[in-house]
């Protein structure tokens, strides 16, 4: 293994471990919210991805956190709590992103998409 290979591997390792990267640029769904204290940088990592008419959740999220909703479909969707949107109701256009504020109380929050009621999931909020 020559020096150039070693240098390239070291650079790759540094990139993979997030050395020098901005937390807001972290890839989708990698936020480690479970069991940790919510910080602003962690909240920025929380992403609900909508793709192929399905929700992909980041796992349990901290109470009061801010979650990004990313719509990768060609049509619009919503993230609407099952209590008729009283707890949260966020619309996100085709290929766009929106922001959802997680409820302050821990618990399970089932939600759906208003235009596509068959799209359902549950947001798990930790205290």
């Amino acid at each position: 293994m020559d020096m150039r290979t070693i240098a390239a591997l070291a650079l790759a390792a540094g990139l993979l471990t997030g050395c020098g990267s901005d937390a807001a640029d972290a890839p989708t769904g990698t936020a480690g919210a479970s069991g940790t204290t919510a910080t602003s940088s962690e909240s920025a990592d929380l992403v609900i991805v909508i793709s192929d008419f399905a929700f992909e959740l980041p796992g349990p999220v901290p109470a009061g956190a801010t979650v990004t909703v990313r719509n990768e479909d060609g049509v619009g969707h919503t993230v609407t709590s099952d209590d008729d949107g009283a707890t949260f109701d966020v619309a996100v256009g085709p290929g766009e992103e929106a922001t959802l504020t997680v409820p302050q109380e821990a618990g399970d929050y089932p939600f759906h998409c208003r235009p596509h009621p068959a799209m359902t999931a549950t947001l798990v909020v930790e205290g």
Binding site: F53, G74, P94, H116, A118
Partner: peptide, 18 residues
Amino acid sequence: VDVPAIGPTPSMYDPLWS
């Protein structure tokens, strides 16, 4: 069929049954 937007007609693809 996932028909894209055509002129003023938006994409209205919806593969789910309701």
